[in-house]
Design a protein around this nucleic acid. Structure first.
Lengths: 198, 198
DNA sequence: ACGATAAGATACACGACTGTACCTAACATC
DNA sequence: GATGTTAGGTACAGTCGTGTATCTTATCGT
């Protein structure tokens, strides 16, 4: 923390390395991830990295596991539609953070290692309680506003799937109007609820 | 074609190079695609590649444009549900072909060039008439079986989005039961049609 | 204040891929 | 059958990343 420090150690250094690895992956993907690039971006020596990790991917997994600013949607009182939109907004915001883009890049790598995918689910996603709209839907099922029998794996994933596809197609973050359209035209109909025409 | 040939030329050679590039990309992704690997897989010399292309990605785009075995769904007489499932089946089969996996890999590359994405849409997708379920839905809208007002961009993309997400999550091709669940639980409800309970 | 630890820096040999140059021989055309 | 074209092969210098070794010195713990 002090200004006179010329050498970082411990947490300071680790944080610099972790954000370097995540940003590098978010920009270039795991295939182009090198120890060299991480070291340069973190302004440290490659030898420092090899002291702890043997592999860029190994390093990246530690970075993603340690870096957990994934908000959980907090369903409000009685606004299913609004809460669903808010959950998707959370998902979009996360997906466009460096960590989110890095995770996406790892998951979509054609040369991905199934063990790595499993490790990601275990270390990153399982910390939260399932996916984004899932949390909201289960909440309203508990209150009786939604028929629990409707919450099949397919239905629980509609919102996330539509957002993911949109991001893949356009490469940009969907705006609130599009998220509302997803909720009104795809998610709510699958719950067999009357739709709102905004 | 003749057996005695020791040197390929023209179409024979081009086909070998194109399939080599596509298979290489499907396995390793565009980030790891090198002139060297393509040349080795096609059993030709690197100099031959440089004579025509300056870049592995340049070569790949030509390969994908030339390689168009993308079937178009042919809607039957009066079976919306069955035709939707069949359309999704076509999509899955294509998505797991080398060409499909190569296209997916290019589109999900975080370092993707927007110009390349545009070129892909222009040279590969636009040859067909839109996406898979789109063709079916527009057909039944024309016959009056589906309300044309329901065919918003969001609704037209539900099937594709669900399949894409499923493939990303599991890395494997969804079976027919899952495709039927997508149609029954997500696509048909969005069309405001009575659902079938298989 | 001192000793242990580890960050920072430099150097090295190795391998992979690049882009070009150059040569040869097979193929197509007339 | 002669000729132009082009695939196939070899060679080369240059760049980038790897993994290891070695040295220094800043920082921490006691």
């Amino acid at each position: 923390m002090s200004e006179g420090r010329t050498r970082r150690r411990g947490k300071d250094l680790l944080d610099a390395i972790y954000t370097a690895a995540i940003e590098e992956t978010a920009e270039s993907g795991p295939a182009r991830l090198t120890m060299d690039a991480i070291a340069k971006r973190a302004a440290t020596a490659r030898t420092t990295l090899y002291r702890r990790w043997s592999d860029p991917l190994d390093l990246l997994l530690d970075a993603l596991a340690e870096h957990h600013p994934v908000e959980t949607p907090a369903p409000g009182a009685d606004d299913l539609r609004g809460d669903l939109i808010a959950a998707l907004r959370l998902m979009v915001d996360w997906g466009f953070s460096p960590a989110g883009r890095a995770v996406m890049a790892v998951l979509t790598d054609p040369a991905r290692d199934p063990a790595v995918v499993e490790a990601l689910w275990e270390r990153v996603f399982r910390k939260r309680g399932g996916t984004f709209t899932q949390t909201v839907l289960r909440h309203y099922a508990a209150t009786g506003a939604v028929d629990p029998a409707r919450l099949t794996p397919v239905v629980l994933d509609i919102g996330e799937a539509m957002v993911t596809k949109r991001i893949l197609d356009t490469g940009r973050a969907p705006d609130d109007d599009y998220l509302a359209a997803i909720v009104d035209q795809a998610v709510l109909p699958a719950l067999a609820l009357p739709q709102r025409n905004t």
